[in-house]
Measured scan of single mutants.
Amino acid sequence: FIDQHRAALIARVTNVEWLLDALYGKVLTDEQYQAVRAEPTNPSKMRKLFSFTPAWNWTCKDLLLQALRESQSYLVEDLER
C-alpha cells in the first residue's frame, strides 16, 4: 500500500507531525526524525520520509500504514477504493 500509493500520500497527507511522532523510536531514528521535521512543507516532509523507506521491511511499512489509518483514515479509505 505504502509503495503503491507513494505519490498520493506525498501530495495528500496533512498531519505529518503526528506520523513522525508515531514512528519515532520504532522506525525512525532521532536523526531521521529531525531531518523530516526540518523540511518546510508537508509534501517535502513526506518525500523525506519516503527517502528512508527503501531500507524498511514490511513491518516498518505496516507501522506507517497503521499510523496513517489512525491519523488520516479518510485518506486511507479513499486510496483503498
Rank of each mutant, 00 (worst) to 15 (best):
L65F: 14
T53G: 04
F50L: 15
A8F: 04
T59N: 14
E77S: 10
T53F: 09
E80S: 11
N42K: 03
T14Y: 06
K45C: 01
T29I: 02
V76W: 05
E77D: 13
L28D: 01
L23P: 04
L9W: 02
N42P: 10
F50P: 05
L65M: 11
Q32C: 04
W56M: 13
V16H: 02
I10L: 06
L65W: 12
N57F: 10
Q72W: 05
T29A: 06
K61T: 04
V36M: 02
D21V: 06
A67Y: 11
M46S: 01
N42S: 08
E70V: 11
A22R: 15
W58C: 14
K61F: 15
T53D: 01
Q72F: 00
K45L: 01
A55S: 15
G25Q: 08
A35C: 07
Q72M: 06
L65S: 07
S71K: 06
A55R: 12
E17A: 05
S71H: 13
W58M: 15
D3N: 05
P43T: 14
D78W: 12
P54V: 11
K61N: 07
Q72P: 00
Q34D: 12
R12M: 05
Q66T: 09
S73Y: 12
D30A: 12
A55G: 15
T59P: 08
K26P: 09
L19E: 01
Q34S: 08
Y24S: 10
S73L: 13
D78E: 13
A8L: 03
T14C: 04
K48L: 09
Y24D: 12
E39Y: 07
R69L: 07
S51F: 05
G25S: 04
P40A: 11
V13L: 05
R6Y: 09
P43V: 13
N15P: 02
P43R: 13
L79Y: 01
D62Y: 05
A67I: 09
L49F: 02
Q4K: 13
T53A: 13
P54K: 14
Q4W: 02
L20H: 01
Q72G: 05
R47C: 12
N42E: 09
F1R: 07
W56A: 01
K26D: 07
S73I: 05
P40C: 08
F52Q: 08
N57P: 11
I10E: 05
K26L: 08
P40W: 02
L28S: 02
L79N: 04
M46N: 00
R37N: 13
K61A: 09
V16T: 06
V16F: 00
V36C: 14
K61I: 00
S44H: 10
L68N: 06
P43E: 14
Q32A: 01
T59W: 14
N15Q: 10
T14W: 01
M46A: 04
D30L: 13
K26I: 13
S44A: 15
K26F: 07
Y74C: 15
Q66A: 09
V36K: 09
K45V: 05
A35T: 09
W18N: 15
P54S: 14
Y33R: 11
L68F: 07
T41R: 01
L49D: 01
V27F: 08
V27K: 00
D3E: 08
R37E: 10
S71T: 13
A8V: 08
V36A: 08
Q4E: 13
